[in-house]
Design a protein around this nucleic acid. Structure first.
Lengths: 248, 248
DNA sequence: GGAATAGTGTCTGTAAGACAATATACT
DNA sequence: AGTATATTGTCTTACAGACACTATTCC
């Protein structure tokens, strides 16, 4: 049995692999993402997604989870949805050297304001529509990444029950509906939303509590159920373009 | 304005970035993928997905397209759907060194038998269910990758018009239905399938030809339309598990 | 003739969209 | 009182699933 040969470093192109994480949460009814202000060149003063090198002993998932914990200060036990978005690899995306970045999307309940890391001047939550409206400058190809991430989140809410990831452990159906309104930018019909959510087995499960302290009747509280998928999926109102001419 | 500083190679962990491509096609009503037999350690004699290093002047998309062309011999102009699946980065997935692989999925019409490359003993099409039934050994983590790729293809046929990517330029609705049957492992109702496909604007467009040479009436031929998405999506019969108890 | 496929058609139940009405609790 | 929200309910239309039938061409 031959031993696997070691690679000579000259055999493969020099490259660094990083992870970047789009950490999304809901604050005041709007989708926010965590951005850090760059303190060094290139793109000094611009805002960037939190990220860093993938270390030798971890895979990209672990690196992303580590960045998430470092930047937000949440405990490792906090259940935050984290999924790979895609990998960005344009040769000149970082002017310093070849950097391939594996990008993740995290969905979290409302989180406290972040503490600035050592390598960043500042870190704060930005409303995504403020960012995409060009209110701030994003470093590298992070504008494209953020755009892809938002589209991923929007589509995830169609096919999966991940809207609950934006909410605390228990929530009302009105709060769940508000998640959809925030992410899709349009409110779904109140009654139809209730009917649809309750018709999906395992989307939500009632708990023995009610919401108090807000106007209106005591709202039944729910927690996330075991189901991951919504079949058939929800329809995004803004997507009801449908080509108009369904010529028959 | 400061110049971007160069990185010292000792600042970032040594890693190689490769692409692997799951090239899928339909042969004899079954989904096939292209695999190459490894001629060297590790995994000598096992089968692997075609792949290679991402070169300094190309991004991962270009590298995947290059591998696709090299392995299949198709022209660069041939319209083959190619999309990124995800990135695999377990630290020990390649025993020789740290290798992060960006994996792509390609969907192609029936292609000729491949020519063995210089680095591979042999290359051939394998039916995916033969592979997943453990009929052959797959190198590295390619069994997991193949499984993920097949799931991606199955779900793509629900939400997108990519089934046409498995067919030549013109095709009949019966052939399109056969694509769904091959990928999903179950045939859809003939009449309902016709109705649904024709109801989606831009899924297929009739051309001024008919299919001859097969039993049955002259079948109208179609070509792929401009639409990319199917809204509302098709439902996979095998997914109609739906939790049974939709308690009301 | 037999087999396979294309094309047209019908019936029915369910789900989605639109909208109404009422009750409750905060300010 | 006014306002905001929760909850139950109705009506109508569209679509999905199931199934029937005929016609055409190859073997």
């Amino acid at each position: 049995m031959e031993e696997p040969t070691e690679y000579d470093p000259r055999d493969y192109p020099p490259v660094a692999v990083t992870v970047d994480v789009v950490i999304a949460t809901l604050r005041g009814g709007r989708v926010h993402v965590l951005l850090v202000e760059r303190g060094e060149q290139p793109f000094r003063g611009a805002w960037a997604l939190p990220g860093g090198f993938v270390q030798p002993d971890e895979d990209a998932d672990a690196a992303a989870r580590r960045e998430l914990v470092e930047e937000t200060g949440i405990g490792l036990a906090t259940p935050v949805h984290l999924e790979q978005l895609r990998t960005y690899s344009a040769p000149q995306r970082d002017p310093r050297m070849r950097v391939v970045s594996v990008v993740y999307v995290a969905l979290a309940p409302d989180l406290p304001d972040p503490v600035a890391g050592s390598d960043a001047v500042a870190a704060r939550w930005w409303a995504v529509d403020d960012v995409t409206d060009g209110e701030i400058d994003l470093a590298f190809d992070h504008a494209q990444i953020l755009s892809d991430a938002v589209e991923r989140i929007r589509s995830r809410l169609e096919y999966t029950t991940l809207a609950t990831s934006f909410l605390p452990r228990v929530f009302t159906l009105g709060e769940l509906r508000a998640v959809y309104a925030a992410v899709w930018g349009e409110a779904l019909d109140l009654q139809n939303f209730r009917r649809k959510v309750l018709a999906v087995p395992g989307f939500v499960e009632p708990v023995d509590e009610v919401r108090v302290g807000v106007p209106g009747p005591r709202a039944q509280l729910y927690r996330a159920g075991g189901a991951a998928e919504i079949v058939p999926p929800f329809r995004r109102p803004s997507r009801i373009v449908r080509g108009e001419g369904s010529e028959r």
